[in-house]
Design a protein around this nucleic acid. Sequence first.
DNA 1: AGAATAAAGGCGAATGTTCGTTCTTGATAA
DNA 2: TTATCAAGAACGAACATTCGCCTTTATTCT
Lengths: 203, 203
Amino acid sequence: MPRVSEQYRADRRAEIMAAAARLFAINGFHSTSMADIIGESGLSAGAVYRYFRSKEDLITAVAETALSSADEVFGSLLAEGATPSPEQAMTAMIHVIDGEMAHHPALGIDVTRVGLQVWAEALRSPQVAARADGVYKRLRGYFAEVARRWQAAGQLDAGAVPEQVGAAMLGLMQGFIVQRLLVDGTDPDDYLAGVKALRQSID
Amino acid sequence: MPRVSEQYRADRRAEIMAAAARLFAINGFHSTSMADIIGESGLSAGAVYRYFRSKEDLITAVAETALSSADEVFGSLLAEGATPSPEQAMTAMIHVIDGEMAHHPALGIDVTRVGLQVWAEALRSPQVAARADGVYKRLRGYFAEVARRWQAAGQLDAGAVPEQVGAAMLGLMQGFIVQRLLVDGTDPDDYLAGVKALRQSID
DNA sequence: AGAATAAAGGCGAATGTTCGTTCTTGATAA
DNA sequence: TTATCAAGAACGAACATTCGCCTTTATTCT
């Protein structure tokens, strides 16, 4: 069916990416073959290669999707929750991971699984590494903004450096992603309770 | 040189594993070929396959080393530091990651890089997943023990659940591992300052 | 003690498979 | 008729692994 609409092309591309993402989430980038992806997509080799120049292209595209998904989801959290308390903010973030990220609305997969693959891939692909660096710096910036609001509300020491607090918050989220996938029985509310208790510890 | 001592065999095995670990840390498990490992080890294909039945065996062995390295290093931290304050404990843990783990004494590599690969691999290998689950539960147990000591010293609310606090501490460490490798300019002391400030935030 | 033998270690070319990718051919909408 | 797209067989490269041969050490026999 030649001479196809722009929409058609975009949809096909998205279909292929979704098929690849499903397999990547299960077996990782490098234990998934192009034959697997071609099969899962229901198209032919020739068709897939019309939409993606190479496997690396496909990996980069899926990694990009996973990273921007995190960006969007945490960004919108900041936009909505005007001035959340520390506890509210933590709760919202953890539930976003356990909710929208664990069941991605568009891809229908657990994007945090792809996230773990992206972290590993960033160690060998400068392109993925650059995107990851950019996205995580932006996330840290979002969290730093939250910290600033806490300072304004007197919930956080005025002398604290917001970017540093943002890094710690980001770290707590990344740690939850790891444990949720790797440690059996990890529960969002248990984790949140632990964070809260730790926040109230004194030296 | 047939009929060789037990020590000799163990040394050779360790050499091969170290060669593999060096490459895995750079390119990951599945973008490193057996030919690469054979070359790096300085031995022949036949020799390497005498010590490891398959590539998967080699991956499992290296993953195991990385995981037990984390276990040992955090376990000994608990043994030494009798009753550290929250701040002291966090500082010690972060510096262990930035020190002994970033420059593994035996392997001479950054084991946290292998750690990221292990996380990704755990998603597809039940064997690696089981080991990761076991090790992280033990680490969480170590940290829970620290939390109990804080409770005894009145530094942590008596109603807090030590295992939950341990999970949060573990999460902070895993998050630091991610950021140190992926976010340019991540600094241990900045991260610690962020954790401290966050710990002093109030709802 | 010294020669012969047995067994283990090491080597590297060879093997069969799987990989990512390409190319030819046929079909379809403009 | 022409340009676009899909199909899938075909291709060379790279892959993990094996196998036959040679070397070296430990043991046995004379």
